[in-house]
Amino acid sequence: MSSNWITPSTRTELIEDLVSGVDRYNPSNVGILEDYLYHQIRSEEYDCLANLAILKLYQFNPDLYNPDVVINILIKSLTASPLPDFNLCISLLDERATNVNLDEPDPLPSLLPVLKGLHRLLYRCRFPAFWTTYRSNDLENLRDNYTVECIGFENSVREVVVRAVKAAFTQISTERLGSYLDINGIALETYVKTLGWTLNSSTGVIGIPPNPDNQIEATVVQEAITLPQLTRVISHAALKV
C-alpha cells in the first residue's frame, strides 16, 4: 500500500495518535474519529485506516454502533477500488443480532447488499452497469440520503474508471469512455482535457499518454545472482583452505 494510503497527508496529528497508538481502543474517542469521517466526506479526503478504527470500536462496543457512520465508511471505501478497502471494512462488521428495541429501523441490513453489489460492479470494471444500477429507482434511498452528502462521490467513481482505463488502453473511443464515465458531449471533452488526454475530434478517439501500465514490451528476465546467495559455497571453500 502506498505510504499515502497508510498515512494520508491530510491526517492530523491527533488522528495519527489514535490510529497508531493504543488509544484507538478507547471508546470515548469514537466521536473524534466519526467527526473526522464526516470531515473526509465534506472535503473529498479519504483515510481508510482511521475509518477502520471506527469499525473496530463498533466491533468491540456494540452500543456505539451507528449505522449511518458505517454506511458512509462503506461509501468512501467503495471508490478505493481496486484496493481491498471495501472488503476490509466488511470484514470488521460482525454479525449483530437484529435489535428489536431500536427506535428507528436499522438502514444497514437493507443497504449492505446494495453496496456490495455496487462494489462488485466496480471491482469487475462493469462501469456502464454500475451507473445504470446506481441511477436506478431502487437506489433512490442510497442516493438521496447518503451519496448526496458525500462530496465528489461520482467524481471519485470516475477516478476508479480512469485508473482502470489508463492501465489498459492507449486509445479509446469517445463513446466507450463516455459510457464508463457516464458523461458525454462537452462535459466529456472538458473532463478528458483536465486529465491531459488528447481528443481527436475527427475520429472521436481519445489518446491516453504512455504510463508504466500501458507500455508493453516483451522481455526475457535473466537470473541475477547476488553475493549472499553464494556465501555458503564460498565460505565452505574458504574453510578448507
Binding site: I216, V221, I225
Partner: peptide
C-alpha cells in the same frame, strides 16, 4: 497487453532458465 481502440496488442515476458540457483 494493451488495447489500442479496438486492437489488442500482446507482449509476453519469458524467464530465462535458472541455472545458477
Amino acid at each position: 497487453f494493451v488495447i489500442d481502440e479496438n486492437m489488442v496488442h500482446i507482449a509476453e515476458s519469458t524467464v530465462g532458465r535458472r541455472y545458477a540457483g
